[in-house]
Write a protein that binds this DNA or RNA. Structure first.
Lengths: 319, 319
DNA sequence: TTGTAAGCGTTATCAC
DNA sequence: GTGATAACGCTTACAA
């Protein structure tokens, strides 16, 4: 492997001059530039980027933490991040954590060790205080509403969205409303649960924890939801489903099992994915790709910013 | 940022000893080890991994090229790769190319520049000769059947699979068979097209290029397929659909448009995703996660291996 | 416009 | 067991 010193020797110049040519800096005579370029060509030279990284203390690598790479919500966030990354000449290092805390720690570890310049955590498992401790090693951004934290974030107000959606269903006459969620433990999930509790208090409705169905991540989970609902003595008349994929699975399951939508059960999905349009599912549009782009921008800066993204109810045929 | 030299000074030992402790090498007295460990603790020291990379000439980073991160086929391959990566203490650098050649070139560039140790290309855009040229910089593996090439690969025999599936449909009485595909230009796609042509020759069936429908990637593309088929004077009686997602979209579309499956049109999907089971779709099971794992293994070695993975027809209700 | 030389933070070789 | 010291390949003051 030929290096910058070999090049300097071949071209009969100093390493500085070679470096200048390599990084298109000014103040190099055309003559020497050509000599260097020639040397590069004949030697089939390529920069060792690790040396650059060590020297500069930067890697142009950004870490992205997601629990599952085959889940549409995260895939869309990732799409937005990847697009911005490309434009800004950053590469992405992917951490697929499956919500295992130790895998998330590995990402933080890499930030500490300077292998990545900054970190986007799309869904967090480990404690917020641990994240904060790592802030000294580089920008970290989250995709959740964490007031009074020192961490930048892009988020939607899940409390408000859930409240509004529940109100909407209430206006439509629903009194027994359940919801489906991926996991119950995240910040976003907890905000939703809070909204759910407050809703029941506000309208003095009986609170039924059976109506909260978790582990709803993929299309096929919709089947389980319907099976479970059919077993209930007093099933909910409406369901908030925090993923259009799952909502779609529910709709299909209902077809298979002769349940009528929205008469037997009303459905509101989330995200407004194409599948929701196709199946005519009422949903709450969340601009995930845009959010991904915003997360990237925040990770690029050191500034502390918390940006709320607004959403839109798309009324279709499942309510 | 404290470094290994500071540590040596603090602990009153040499950098070598510190390095030994850091890398758990033998031949360090318990006494000095403790001193070093103590220094590490009080100084909040962390290795600069870039220096390690430079020194070792390796990064423990593996590149993965996929066209779309929100496509289930690639998401599953990625899942398998990520799992192995974790076990072998490798991190993944993701290149989302959208089939744009220049983005694939960036991945090759990083291999050249030693920022990644090896590269897995799940779906290739650029010429095979370009890949071969880059083989000198590190292992590159492909996910396609490229006989007589010097490139390692894990693949399924798309020619044979397609031939068998077409024969199967022929036995079931179908004479007008079409197929849906993502793009027509990849090696895998061309093998399938070849099988399709040979099938028609073998049974002396009229060949109708309208029966090949491309750009079929996502669930929602199923709708377009059905729209198109309904416009045909002599529509196919069966469809090979190279993705269960699209097959599922087709099945739903048929429901919406009062087409009966398999009477009006028979469907065979690919991959055996959960959605196929749920919608009772006959499909060809491809162990994508396992293939991903195998790709990783090959990328880890320098040996040239070409491994064919076998598949299985899962008979359900759409044929 | 050009070059010298001092980093960047490790690992590896070799002598003691 | 231990420690100098030379790589690794690049960037960047600073000097000329």
């Amino acid at each position: 492997m030929t290096n910058i010193r070999d090049l300097a020797q071949m071209a009969g110049v100093s390493v500085t001059t070679v470096s200048r040519v390599l990084n298109q800096h000014p103040y190099v005579s055309e003559e020497k530039r050509k000599a260097v370029l020639e040397a590069i060509k004949v030697s089939n030279y390529h920069k060792n980027i690790n040396a650059v990284h060590l020297s500069k203390g930067k890697t142009q690598l950004m870490g992205v933490v997601i629990p599952f790479s085959d889940h549409s919500y995260f895939a869309m966030l990732l799409k937005g991040i990847a697009k911005q990354a490309l434009e800004h000449n950053y590469k992405l290092v992917l951490f697929q954590t499956e919500y295992i805390e130790s895998k998330e720690m590995e990402a933080l570890q890499m930030l500490k060790q300077k292998q990545i310049d900054s970190l986007i955590i799309c869904s967090r498992s480990c404690d917020i205080s641990i994240i904060e401790e790592h802030l000294q090693f580089g920008p970290i951004v989250l995709c959740e509403d964490n007031p009074r934290s020192k961490i930048s974030s892009t988020f939607v107000n899940h409390y408000k969205i859930f409240s509004d959606a529940l109100d909407y269903l209430y206006q439509k006459g629903h009194r027994q409303i359940g919801y489906c969620i991926g996991r119950r433990s995240g910040t976003n999930s907890q905000n939703r649960e809070l909204a759910y509790q407050h809703f029941h208090k506000k309208y003095r409705l009986p609170y039924n924890s059976d109506y909260i169905i978790d582990q709803c991540l993929y299309f096929e989970d919709g089947e389980r939801v319907i099976t479970r609902i059919k077993e209930m003595d007093t099933p909910p008349s409406a369901l908030l489903v925090t993923s259009d994929q799952v909502a779609a699975g529910i709709v299909i399951s209902c077809q298979n099992q002769q349940l009528s939508i929205p008469d037997d059960i009303a459905i509101i999905g989330f995200d407004n994915e194409p599948i929701a349009k196709m199946l005519n599912i009422t949903t709450i549009e969340i601009p995930l790709v845009e959010m991904g782009g915003n997360l990237f921008q925040q990770a690029l800066n050191r500034a502390l910013t918390n940006r709320e993204i607004s959403v839109k109810l798309i009324e279709r045929g499942t309510v």
